[in-house]
Design a protein around this nucleic acid. Sequence first.
DNA 1: TCCATATTGATAACTGTTTCTCAATTATCG
DNA 2: CGATAATTGAGAAACAGTTATCAATATGGA
Lengths: 124, 124
Amino acid sequence: MERRTAQRQAIRDAIGQARRPLSAEEVLAVARRRCRGLGQATVYRALGSGVQEGWLKCVQMPTGPARYEIAELPHHHHFECTRCHRVFDVNGCPGRLDRMVPSGFTLQRHEILLFGLCAGCRNN
Amino acid sequence: MERRTAQRQAIRDAIGQARRPLSAEEVLAVARRRCRGLGQATVYRALGSGVQEGWLKCVQMPTGPARYEIAELPHHHHFECTRCHRVFDVNGCPGRLDRMVPSGFTLQRHEILLFGLCAGCRNN
DNA sequence: TCCATATTGATAACTGTTTCTCAATTATCG
DNA sequence: CGATAATTGAGAAACAGTTATCAATATGGA
């Protein structure tokens, strides 16, 4: 059966407390604060099984590593800072995207990606 | 100085005649029809210099290789078929995306990505 | 406590994509 | 026509991100 470990707890907490999608590297950095010596393989394994189990969702951006966020969040989109490369959630969605779909095509899902400077980078 | 070669001509034509963004592999396949023995290194080199020169634009999707399209096309977005992974242009843009940006952030650019089945895959 | 085995960390290996290397080829100029 | 240097093709290598390997460790039940 599945065992409770300090490593997985730290990883879950890191993701749960972040207000934005985190990369494996970011998860590792945060979770290591509570779990010394945590290995990156463990993070990748936990992320993979989190997605399998359905409580985690993988967010792919055009470049850079995958980010992970809690699966149950309401529909939203993402903003990537072009300087620090952190990804943030943005809420709202223009809708009506099915109007853009060429005739004969079937729309399954969509993503809106915003790029620019986050508040922190804009002021530094 | 820069020389005119059959290879570059075939590559330019392949991109110019496609009605959608092509990956390096797709460009190679098309351009090889007119230029036997064309190598992939040549395609990558031509795509790179096309972007440098400004007439080509690189389209990055969350997964898969970069696609390339003519730079001067009017503002539009992309649709990727989840079955054949070809990328198509879609026109129209909902606009008003700046409303979604968190306060303090600066929006530089945006991308709308649609995913689903293209007409060909839907009927097969 | 002890055991069976799930889990871990370090590291090697892998994947898909792209770039580099280099000898051979070829376009352009005089 | 040469000479010169840009360009090419094949293959090796780089690259970032991720997954696999495996011995050591630690969990949860008996």
